[in-house]
Computed example of a mutant assay.
Amino acid sequence: MSTTQDLVAALKTELKAAGITYAELAVQLGMSESSIKRVFAKGDMPLSRIDEVLRVLKMDFAELARLIADAQPPSRELTLDQERAVVADRRLLLLAICCLSQWTYEQMVGTYSFTEAECVAYLVALDRLGIIELRPLNRYRLKVAKGFRWRPNGPVMQYFRTQVVGDYYSGGFDAEGEMLMLVHGQISPSQASGFVDRLQRVGSDFAQQHLADQKLPSAQRRAYTLVVGMRSWLFAAFRDLRRDPDAD
């Protein structure tokens, strides 16, 4: 769908929500009802006409553009160029993770050593990268889907493999609310896909609980990181002991 078609579709939605019929709109614009219907049916309208319809709706172009942006399907992953830009600056990566966790601007500057100006500058950078839409008063809207993930073999995951994994697994996993479990077995690929679906739901549940607990005082919350993984794999230390090294 073209940009003009997006604008016309959004206008149709707003006219319906406002209870304004094509006949009523035609009167206010000094046009025939048939002409109005034809313009909306074609989905092609000059900007001057769009402005006239917006005046009838008592809206401005910025509001219409925001409605269109909100209606766009969010991204499930970033492009390689977007990830490269994020991982090139660890402070930008940190704030990207904060945004994906839906931290407020106040939480970001209150938790990490960013000045207010620095934090805003990084939020602007994330806006330009298309990860968030920065709004007044340093509020933002995420432009990624709930099921968003970093590219499996992309720059960000490579950064975590080299810089983060060792630090994460060096812990004892023995404190309250912690665990580390390794389970090995042989199951059918279809059953493996079923387990992946269930593990994805666990991740979604964790993310939803994070959002729900944002209303609690900070003293009642503690940072946790859930790492979920599943792959067909054999320990490197044991691979040479297999009778058939080429077997799956």
Rank of each mutant, 00 (worst) to 15 (best):
Q5N: 05
L11Y: 00
L15H: 10
A18Y: 12
G19W: 09
T21P: 02
A23E: 15
E24T: 00
A26W: 08
A26S: 04
V27L: 12
V27D: 08
L29C: 02
M31E: 12
A41G: 04
S48E: 15
D51I: 08
V56S: 03
F61A: 02
E63S: 14
R66E: 15
L67S: 12
L67D: 12
L67Y: 02
A69H: 07
D70P: 03
P74Y: 08
R76L: 13
L78F: 09
L78T: 07
A85M: 01
R90L: 04
C98M: 06
Q107H: 12
T111I: 01
Y112V: 05
A121R: 11
I131A: 05
P136N: 11
N138C: 10
L142D: 05
A145V: 02
G147Y: 10
G147E: 13
G147K: 15
G154H: 13
P155H: 12
Q158L: 05
Y159Q: 10
R161M: 07
V165S: 10
V165F: 14
D167C: 06
S170T: 09
G171R: 08
F173G: 13
G177R: 13
G177T: 08
M181T: 15
P189G: 10
S190R: 11
Q200Y: 03
R201V: 15
S204R: 00
D205S: 03
L211W: 01
L211T: 02
L211E: 03
P217I: 02
R221V: 07
R222K: 12
Y224L: 12
V228P: 14
V228R: 08
G229M: 05
F235I: 10
F235S: 13
D240I: 11
R242D: 00
R242Y: 06
R243C: 08
R243K: 09
P245C: 10
